[in-house]
Design a protein around this nucleic acid. Sequence first.
RNA 1: GGAGAGGUGGCCGAGUCGGCUGAAGGCGCUCGCCUGCUAAGCGAGUAAGGGGGCAUAAACCUCCUUCGAGGGUUCAAAUCCCUCCCUCUCCGCCA
Length: 425
Amino acid sequence: MLDIKLVRNNPEVVARSIQNRGAAQDLDDFLKMEQQRRELTRKVQELKTRRNQASQEVALAKREGRDPDQALEGLSELSETIKELDGELKGLDRQVQEWLLTVPNIPAEDVPVGSSEEDNLEVRTWGEKPPMDFQPREHWDLGVELGGLDFEHAARMTGSRFVIYLGWGARLERALINFMLDVQTGEHGYQETMPPMIVNRESMTATGQLPKFAEDLFKLENWEYYLIPTAEVPLTNIHRGEILDEDRLPLAYAAFTGCFRSEAGSHGKDTKGIIRQHQFNKVELVRFAHPDDSFQQLDLLLGHAEEILKRLGLHYRVVSLCTGDLGFGAAKTYDIEVWLPGQGKYREISSCSNFTDFQARRGDIRYKPRQGKKSRLVHTLNGSGLAVGRALVAIIENCQQKDGSIVIPEVLRPYMGGMDQIRKQ
RNA sequence: GGAGAGGUGGCCGAGUCGGCUGAAGGCGCUCGCCUGCUAAGCGAGUAAGGGGGCAUAAACCUCCUUCGAGGGUUCAAAUCCCUCCCUCUCCGCCA
């Protein structure tokens, strides 16, 4: 959520942001409504001041044993008027709030302006495409043949976009989870966390999934509860409504969770394989940062995600998302795209964002500065560290051999009971 | 599921028959004093959000709102009534 004062005082900044993102938002109507709201606020406040003063008179008269009738004169009518206008004001307040909840964050200064992913900026690459003197196979082909992935039975028990990991597949998924968590918690200083995978409406609103993107979420029937689309939601909401000590910043949390997405509007996209599933595993990193250094924190976070791919020896590139491709709440986002030889493409395996104070304002997450007494909003950041299923895909496709076997990256072998290769039984 | 207790500032905790209680007292924190150092002691300050003064930022002044959430009674609600949510204790049941 944007600061209402910013919208009011610098509408041109907001207008440009909306335009660069390719969003549609009626700023003028809002400003008129907001103006109206403030006028009514003022009016109601004046009446309340009068009422409060008169009430004091009554109290004083009674305490001194005088007759309070004179002070009570016309008071109930005044109260009635206040009640009426207060109701009207409440309606306006709600409308203002609702509008603010649907406006995207303002992109950071150095975010490239553009309309689609074509305009994203490649920041760097790491490693190289593995040399292959044969036609590389796709993971849904090789993974199934080697018995690690089973789409058919998953489709029967649930439906499309679900998978069963079997044998080495399940083991490899678990190995990746443990490896990622060990690095992030043991070496990068993240607090290990196992949060709920079901959260309430307030939490979804704070991080920005609601109210605008309800159709992307799975909602529980008869409950105001939702399955999380990412652990960003529970982790960021750990401190919702809190005032943190400045000394404690930055706070860093890591969690492995399932993630659940309806994938509404992506029909026909990535229908094969485990790239786009309704349920997938992810190790997520979340940081609560001081506003003065949140962009340095973003670089740090990005490095933590990259480290996993480096140790797995997987070639990737980092891109800075342009304004048109930026997520709703993000001020700046780096995507890490891993090379997939089977598909012959780079595919997103991590997305690291600085949300500045956007989520903090929605979730009321602040800190108390050492100097000065006013509490300020923290900055929140998050990134995948990494998407586990896609990492598994990358390993299958990058580490495959001419004979149809897969060589397990060295760092994972201790997690695989020493296994170094996957081959057809 | 049954019975009971409770939700008040950064934290703990008081709040009498509704009326100078936005909230005693304590802890913590900040500043100052004192002090070889530390500790202790003394003094002062210390909730958030919003409106206006103010075109803008800070400071300041002032007003409004907020005592789990929502509604009601009343000139006036932390205090009375209703609904809901959450926490705790006991019993029952269960991974």
